[in-house]
Design a binder for these strands. Structure first.
Lengths: 256, 256
DNA sequence: CGCAGAATTGATACATCTCAAGCTGGGTGG
DNA sequence: CCACCCAGCTTGAGATGTATCAATTCTGCG
């Protein structure tokens, strides 16, 4: 089903087409961020690129996983599904995020590409050995896992205690902040970014129905908190206002 | 406010009164689980015990943290609070769980003792150095963080998609499983354990109001899924039944 | 152009929240 | 020793936010 492209056939982005760590767009933020040249060389021996189309499933929960890796470009999601079909997204994977758990054989969640994505994969066994022998990799992996844990806990507050409107505002606010970090967006007087999620995906993330998501997005637009351009582009004229709507303290260290 | 007891004054448990790693009840499950004798010796140099009474706050969110550590006995909680007072519990800390984040100066959450607890604390600075130089500690910390991340993600499903009744059943089921692991409970035909949480704390964990928690606990008792003995002791005659009520797949690998 | 997937909007149902009384049990002081 | 007290808990009745069911209306694309 999932075809393997050791050297990915990319449509547009040539930057990733050359699988050389030096020019990698996520070099300084991914699991390899702390690596020295020799350590990178070791990683390059067990690495390969793989791309997935929008909508494609990267791994099914429970499947054997023979690789771990980083998102190089695009957006993927981590979801959990109950027997009766109820679904909850438990992670939003953006460029530089890590996929997979060293030391576990099977995938714990469904991983799905929501846009076309390119992944930098490492064969699992040798990568685990590198984690054990290369402190720079182990340290970075710990840092990233701790960050993910914080993000998951922030999300628990969103899911457990926030209203539908606050949930939408929280999601937009988080994606906006990460977009600015990745410099994929501009900050001028406002912030503009792509939100590559359908209403249904947003609902799965927020523990809502897609109808409620639609209503609340419309309400935020009516109230001037956000502007929409087409289906995917979001403009936030005033980040402070958005974060107020999210129920977060004033600026959360984002501005100033 | 928080008094320091380098050698804790314990009422009953003499096992912990001697701060010697060899006889430590969490020796094989805590952050030190993988350490060799020499590594333990290094840890012992920067470790001290500290105890907190039930209800006492261990750390306030935002406070400077000069230590990290393990829960030796008792139960503590990690909570997040919004400006308007809404609260969400984001972690339940049981014996062997780790408190604090290496590499961060301030606490991100409120940590509160819900029973009397004993902590094995490590001075933060030297502990961070040990993490950097002792792979066995760094590896174990990564393992534990990954486990916590999984737990947080499981909790996201509970918060986002489960009904009030399923939420209660999920909480009981999780505490029951951990109690069995810690052998603090018996399994015979059923499972018995202490639930050291008030209705309000349960509500904060589950994203419910305390009234809804009370109603659903009563309903589960009426339906014979659980039995209560006093305010804290819970009996589960049939774990499979409880897990069905939680919406989890049949036995989740717990039985058989 | 016209189709299909995605999004919006409306009307109603229902689970949980909110507000408000009581209850219970363990500790305390008269 | 018993009455009181109080935090924690239970129960009830009504309010409300979100889900559910059901049409439409967009939007991109073949």
């Amino acid at each position: 089903m999932t075809q393997i492209n050791p050297i990915p056939a990319l449509k547009s982005s040539m930057a990733v087409a050359t699988p050389d760590c030096a020019g990698c767009p996520i070099r300084h933020r991914a699991v390899c961020a702390k690596c020295e040249a020799d350590e990178l060389a070791q990683l390059e021996e067990v690495k390969y690129y793989r791309s997935f189309e929008a909508g494609q499933t990267v791994i099914w929960s429970g499947d054997r996983m023979d690789f771990v890796g980083s998102i190089v470009s695009g957006v993927a999601t981590l979801t959990q599904t109950m027997e009766d079909g109820r679904r909850q997204m438990v992670g939003l994977l953006l460029p530089s995020d890590f996929v997979g758990r060293p030391g576990r054989s099977g995938a714990a969640y469904d991983v799905t590409a929501t846009t076309e994505i390119v992944m930098c994969c490492f064969r699992k066994k040798p990568f685990e050995e590198l984690v054990a022998t290369t402190p720079h990799i182990a340290q970075r992996l710990l840092e990233m896992t701790l960050d993910e844990l914080d993000a998951a806990r922030e999300w628990m507050l969103v899911l457990g205690r926030k209203t539908a409107r606050e949930k939408i505002a929280s999601l937009l606010s988080i994606v906006a902040r990460r977009s600015v970090l990745a410099d994929q967006a501009s900050l001028k007087d406002g912030v503009v970014f792509d939100l590559p999620l359908t209403r249904e995906a947003m609902a799965d993330y927020l523990g809502l129905t897609l109808e409620t998501v639609s209503r609340q997005v419309s309400a935020l637009r009516r109230d001037g908190v956000i502007q929409l351009d087409g289906k995917r582009k979001v403009m936030v004229p005033d980040m402070g206002r958005l974060m107020e709507e999210a129920g977060d303290d004033s600026d959360g260290g984002f501005l100033g």
